[in-house]
């Protein structure tokens, strides 16, 4: 049987004495569309960093990626990652959309190798997939937030990953761009069989899209189908106070 793409067993982590994550078990199987939900400060970002390898190994438990212990996992290109919109790039950076997308191939090519015409083709194919090919020669800083997000999704896709992780993808994006974004993810799942993990603080928006839901607030409160989730009791447990029910959400 194929090992899950991501597997966390009893993971505990803290920056100080207070645990940020406590006894977290989480599995992402091939083809899953997982929504990882939790309020601000719930440990979502920490969990993400552990999976992405930007934090040292957890003090307790085990993380496996594609069956390999996270510390030994070398094929980072298998995981495509799209950071929050507010992420670290300088909007005055003088790079074209195509140049930005090609940076997604750097690690896969490896050190001392030059990117080729083949890589340029791959970049254009990825831009085509997200509907941004006609913008390839535009400067990245001149695009709108929603357009930049599509470019960054193309950058994550260009290395042909098996798992795509998106961190708060709809924060600061208008309603139209949001629905276009969810449509794009649906298309990518249908055309590439992509496994997707979507991290969000907003359960209402995500629950209708994903095939499985994981609710985190230091511990994992729920991990299963979104259809079986949503009692007042569970929401209270997750957020620590009553919130709107997910069934009020409109498309």
């Amino acid at each position: 049987m194929e090992s899950p793409l991501v597997q966390l067993k009893d993971v505990g982590f803290g920056y100080g004495p207070e645990p940020v994550l406590d006894g977290v078990d989480l599995t992402v199987g091939r083809g899953d569309y997982l929504g990882l939900i939790g309020p601000n400060g719930s440990g979502k970002t920490t969990l993400l960093k552990l999976i992405l390898g930007t934090l040292p190994a957890p003090r307790r438990g085990e993380i496996r990626l594609f069956g390999t212990p996270a510390a030994q996992f070398k094929e980072r290109w298998k995981i495509g990652y799209v950071a929050q919109k507010a992420a670290s790039f300088n909007s005055g950076f003088p790079a074209t959309v195509e140049e930005v997308v090609m940076t997604g191939l750097v690690a896969r090519r490896g050190l001392w190798r030059v990117l080729t015409g083949e890589d340029r083709k791959a970049a254009r194919a990825a831009l085509e997939q997200v509907g941004m090919l006609s913008f390839k020669d535009r400067m990245i800083g001149r695009l709108s937030g929603g357009q930049q997000q599509r470019v960054f999704i193309a950058r994550a896709l260009v290395s042909r990953p098996e798992l795509l992780i998106l961190d708060e993808p709809t924060v600061g994006v208008d309603v139209q761009a949001e629905s276009q974004f969810y449509q794009l993810i649906r298309d990518l799942r249908a055309s590439m069989g992509l496994t997707v993990m979507l991290v969000s603080h907003d359960i209402g928006a995500v629950a209708h899209e994903v095939t499985s839901l994981a609710c985190l607030n230091r511990r994992l409160f729920y991990h299963g189908s979104p259809d079986d989730f949503g009692t007042e009791e569970q929401l209270c447990e997750l957020y620590g106070h009553p919130v709107r029910s997910i069934h009020h959400h409109h498309h």
Binding site: L52, G53, T54, K74, E75, R76, W77, I79, Y81, A83, A87, S88, F89, N90, F93, A95, E99, V100, T103, G104, V106, A107, R108, L111, R155, S159
Partner: peptide
């Protein structure tokens, strides 16, 4: 280019 554009993203992607 990749590290100058976005160091965090480069690290996550596996660039040394």
């Amino acid at each position: 280019l990749s590290v100058s554009f976005d160091e965090e993203q480069a690290r996550v992607g596996g660039v040394p």
